[in-house]
Structure formats: C-alpha cells, structure tokens
Computed example of a mutant assay.
Amino acid sequence: MGATVVAVHRSSTHSFSKPTVAEIELLEGLGVRGDAHCGTTVKHRSRVRADPDQPNLRQVHLLHAELFDHLATVGHQISPGDFGENITTRGIALLDLPVGTRLTVGEAVITITGLRNPCQQINDFQPGLLKHVVRTDDDGTVVRLTGVMGIVSRSGLVRADDRITVVLPPEPRHRLTRV
C-alpha cells in the first residue's frame, strides 16, 4: 500500500486542534491556504513573541496516525486533527526522515525542516498526554513524537488517500531536531 494521507486539516484560528476538511491547498513558500500558520515569517504565537521576523520553517505540520494507535494502548483516544496537524499520514516513518527530505504529497512538495516540539497545551487537551509524546531516552536524548514540520516547495492540492513519495537529501544527512 505504501505511504498515504489519512486526512487533511486547517484552521484560520490558533486553536489547538484543526477540523478535518476535504482538501487543503499548499502554497509554495507560505503553507496551507486559510490556515493561521500560513506565511513567510513565523506564525506560532510563542515564536512571534521571540522574533516576529524569523522565517517560517513550520508552514506544514505532518503527523503519523501510528502515534494514535500507540496512544490508544495507554488510554488516550486521539483522532486526526486533534494535535493540530495539517496532514495525517500512515505508512511513513516521519520521525526517522532527515532534514531536507522532500515529500511529494498529492500535487504538492513539502521539504522537511524539523520536529514539532510538544508543549504544555497537550496536557491541557488531555491530562497526562504530554509524557506519552515526549520523553528522555536512557542516554539523555529528548524524543519528540508529535510529528514533523516542513515548508512548501511546490504548490498543490492535498486530499485524503493521496500517495506520499519520499526523496532523501544527499549525504551527509542530518537528524531532525526541533524547529
């Protein structure tokens, strides 16, 4: 079957969760048309407070549905869009991709920039959830499980059931870090 889009989401407000829609339009260099995070400069409120002129490396949020399966085993029922992602995927190990990976998703191309950094809002959404999506490994490495962020490298429409193809960047490859 391969990697596919489960669902797509957008919200014109800075709400935690995003409603599912039939399709989203990705705009090159900007993000998701009609989404609160669309733009060339950062739109996440905490990042805007720190530096409103920094480039928007978080134009599109992708999250793997396999995380929902895992969270169900520890008592958390999560649905597509609940974490505020724009694209819910299945069949692709998003967290293992290196920086600069290009994903063709529907008509669009997304270049992966880094990991989403989970925050306290996750516990506000469901108490106790944060400890299941961010943890520290035995070697002290912080592991973030709430998906990846990217920029739009080619405009296009994305819908549920669209295939996802992966093109890895040239060597040397760099592990994802939070953006």
Score class of each variant (00 low, 15 high):
163 R>Q: 14
15 S>K: 08
13 T>D: 14
105 V>Y: 00
167 V>S: 05
54 Q>I: 10
101 T>N: 10
42 V>H: 08
16 F>E: 03
26 L>A: 04
162 D>P: 07
135 R>E: 09
16 F>N: 03
140 G>T: 05
131 K>H: 10
120 Q>R: 07
173 R>Y: 05
118 P>W: 04
126 Q>T: 08
141 T>P: 04
44 H>E: 12
22 A>P: 09
89 T>Q: 02
19 P>L: 15
37 H>L: 14
127 P>L: 11
162 D>E: 10
5 V>M: 03
97 L>R: 04
122 I>N: 02
134 V>A: 12
142 V>R: 01
139 D>W: 02
151 I>P: 00
125 F>Y: 13
100 G>M: 04
1 M>Y: 05
146 T>K: 09
66 E>T: 15
173 R>G: 02
65 A>V: 04
39 G>N: 04
65 A>W: 08
9 H>C: 15
135 R>G: 12
14 H>W: 10
46 S>R: 11
155 S>C: 12
167 V>Q: 07
159 R>V: 05
3 A>Y: 02
29 G>A: 02
65 A>I: 01
37 H>G: 08
127 P>H: 05
145 L>W: 01
78 I>F: 02
105 V>T: 14
25 E>K: 15
88 T>I: 14
48 V>R: 06
76 H>A: 12
156 G>Y: 06
110 I>R: 01
73 T>V: 08
58 R>N: 11
58 R>M: 12
143 V>L: 10
33 R>E: 15
37 H>C: 13
96 D>W: 09
144 R>Y: 08
71 L>R: 09
87 I>H: 00
76 H>Y: 15
34 G>D: 14
154 R>I: 10
107 E>D: 13
123 N>V: 02
11 S>G: 09
40 T>Q: 12
150 G>V: 09
86 N>A: 08
62 L>T: 05
115 L>D: 05
71 L>H: 09
138 D>C: 07
79 S>R: 10
109 V>C: 03
172 P>Q: 08
128 G>D: 02
54 Q>K: 11
162 D>R: 04
163 R>W: 06
125 F>R: 05
94 L>E: 06
117 N>D: 12
3 A>R: 10
167 V>N: 05
174 H>K: 07
49 R>L: 13
49 R>H: 10
83 F>Q: 02
149 M>G: 01
137 D>L: 10
76 H>L: 03
48 V>C: 09
72 A>P: 00
111 T>R: 08
117 N>P: 00
115 L>M: 10
73 T>D: 07
162 D>W: 03
177 T>V: 13
98 P>H: 02
7 A>V: 07
179 V>M: 01
178 R>T: 15
163 R>I: 01
173 R>V: 06
161 D>V: 04
121 Q>E: 09
158 V>G: 07
54 Q>M: 13
12 S>Q: 11
40 T>M: 11
51 D>A: 10
52 P>Q: 01
140 G>H: 00
175 R>N: 00
168 L>V: 05
170 P>V: 01
32 V>E: 04
138 D>G: 13
93 A>Q: 14
55 P>M: 08
52 P>S: 03
46 S>F: 11
145 L>Q: 13
119 C>T: 11
179 V>N: 05
178 R>W: 00
155 S>A: 12
158 V>Q: 01
2 G>W: 11
107 E>L: 04
106 G>I: 14
92 I>L: 15
89 T>E: 04
66 E>Q: 12
53 D>W: 05
120 Q>F: 13
111 T>M: 11
91 G>I: 05
